[in-house]
Amino acid sequence: MANHYYFDIKLKLRDPDAVVLTPALFRSCVLEALDSFFCEEKPTLEIVKFCAQQQRVVFRVPEELHDIVRMSIELIGHYQQMPCHFEILQSSKSSLDFEKSIEKTLSGLPNFED
């Protein structure tokens, strides 16, 4: 089984309502960046989780592509001609899930209703 690296990304967009946020478009944006920066054509990039409302994505790439994917994401400045910042919140060899991390954070908070 091939080793993978997981990325947890927060999408920061200037005007989120003005763009269409879909897994396919996000994937093509990252692949385009990889192609333009490193001439890496059609690398494997699997989207594990995508939430347009929270503007969060978890995807995975083969281990050998970790460094160039990371740099490409840092250098992405536009999503559909809209200024954006794809903030890498976490990258890990083990599987990531932003919903679980959100639940964990919420459960850690004190319950004021009691």
Binding site: K12, R14, R70, M71, E74, L75, G77, P83, C84, H85, E87, I88
Partner: peptide, 12 residues
């Protein structure tokens, strides 16, 4: 939107 975190910058 052109700002990046210090660790990301170091990675560049």
């Amino acid at each position: 939107f052109q700002l990046r975190g210090p660790y990301d910058v170091a990675n560049l």
